[in-house]
Each structure stands twice: as structure tokens, then as C-alpha cells.
Design a protein around this nucleic acid. Structure first.
Length: 224
DNA sequence: TGCCAGGCCGGGT
DNA sequence: ACCCGGCATGGC
């Protein structure tokens, strides 16, 4: 396969169509969700988001005005609530202080500079930064998550233990530089992970079945 | 009933 | 440059 990433994209998109990501009502909600979903089931994040909405806290200055302990209680369902409450404050303070709380100010910043500045925020690592770049700001930043790493490594498409940057670069090099494509690519991989992760063998019905090595040795157990 | 989810940080090799 | 323990709730 000349470009495995593009082939994966084609097959998943053909099978499942556009995923309409990120599931949120506003770019700010995307940023908040990107922190809350760190190593956490999205179902739990939905509760936390709903709590924030009910409290009217899904606006930068409102969120920053909430006492820390209160913020912790609102996001408790998302897990790591003490850590994440602080991370939310760091991110939102950054957003307000450096961009006046306006997404348009982020869009006016160059991709590389914005990524560096996001990474400098406490609690924002490579995946969260890329999620914000892509899904909140609309920049063409490919998001690599645990599913993607397992999928590509277990099929031998990249070496085991490849770094985030290595995999991101590899996939970006095989796809058109297009935020819409990157958006769907990551969303479709997550969908794949939700269905075929762990105990379910990647076999009958999986859109990627025909990409497997003959006999499916590598994927005998699991796709992720 | 345990295991794990759309990571990241800090301290130690 | 890696490796590891810690962080926490809710679903299956």
C-alpha cells in the first residue's frame, strides 16, 4: 500500500461517513472538552460539560470566576477532577490573557506559534494541543491518540514505540493538508476504537479487514 | 468484579 | 531521551 493512512481514511469514511466532530456547541466548549476527555471516557465528560452548562460556566470569564472547589465538583464526573480543574483554569487564563478570550485571535496566529504556546500551558500536551488547534481553531493539525498508535503499530505500519511526533508526521505526510480530512480521520479512528477495541476481534464487518495481513495473524485478538 | 477510557506531569534513570 | 507512578469517575 503506497499510502496506508489515506487508504484507512477512504475505507472508514466510505463505511461510516462524516462523523460531524467535535461534539460541542462552541469552540470554547471544544477547548474545555479537550481537557476533560484526557484519558477518560467521553460519556463521563458529557456529564461534566452538562454541569458546567447548567452553572452557566461555559464562558471564559464565568469559568474563571468559580471558586476552585466548586469547579472541581462540577467536573467531578470526568475523573481526575482536582487535576483537571487546575488545568482548565490554566488553559482559560491563557485564552483570556493572551487572546482576549476570542477564537478569532487564535485563528490570526500562525499554526506553529499557536501550537508552541498551547504546549507551554500547564496540562496541555501534544494531543490536547492538536485537538484544540484542529477542532476549536480549525487549523490543519492531525490528532494522534492511543487508538491511532495501537492501530498503526500493531499492523506494522509504523515501528512499535514510535513517538507522538513521529506518528503524527507520518500520517500528515500521507494525507492532503486539509483540516476537514484531518477532522474526519481522527473522528473515524475513535469510532473504530469504540467498536473494535479490546475484546472484540477486528474481523467480520470491520472496514479495515481487507488491510490486514493474509490470515490476520497480527489482528487475531484485537485491533487496538 | 475488575479493567479501562479520545493524557499529562514530575521525578528518576 | 525514555520510563514510571499518580491522578479518579462511571460503564461494561
Amino acid at each position: 500500500m503506497q499510502s496506508i493512512s489515506l487508504e484507512v481514511y477512504r475505507r472508514l469514511f466510505k463505511a461510516w461517513g462524516p462523523q460531524h466532530w467535535w461534539p460541542a456547541d462552541s469552540p470554547f466548549e471544544v477547548m474545555v472538552g479537550a481537557v476533560l476527555v484526557q484519558n477518560t471516557n467521553w460519556k463521563n465528560v458529557e456529564r461534566a460539560i452538562q454541569n458546567l452548562k447548567s452553572a452557566g460556566a461555559l464562558v471564559p470569564h464565568k469559568l474563571l470566576g468559580i471558586p476552585l472547589e466548586e469547579l472541581q465538583e462540577l467536573i467531578r464526573p470526568a475523573g481526575y477532577f482536582r487535576v483537571k480543574a487546575q488545568r482548565l483554569r490554566s488553559l482559560v487564563s491563557f485564552f483570556v490573557d493572551e487572546f482576549n478570550g476570542e477564537i478569532s485571535a487564535m485563528q490570526a496566529t500562525s499554526h506553529d506559534e499557536l501550537r508552541q504556546r498551547l504546549l507551554s500551558v500547564h496540562g496541555i500536551g501534544p494531543e490536547t494541543a492538536d485537538s484544540i488547534l484542529l477542532y476549536a481553531v480549525g487549523k490543519p493539525a492531525l490528532v494522534v491518540d492511543a487508538y491511532t498508535q495501537r492501530l498503526f503499530a500493531r499492523h506494522g505500519w509504523i515501528p512499535h514505540g514510535s513517538s507522538y511526533q513521529a506518528l503524527k508526521g507520518h500520517i500528515e505526510g500521507e494525507l492532503p493538508v486539509d483540516a476537514t480530512i484531518y477532522n474526519e480521520f481522527h473522528a473515524l479512528i475513535v469510532q473504530l476504537g469504540k467498536i473494535y477495541c479490546r475484546r472484540t476481534p477486528l474481523c467480520d464487518g470491520c472496514p479495515l479487514q481487507q488491510l490486514l495481513p493474509e490470515g490476520g495473524v497480527i489482528l487475531e485478538k484485537c485491533a487496538c
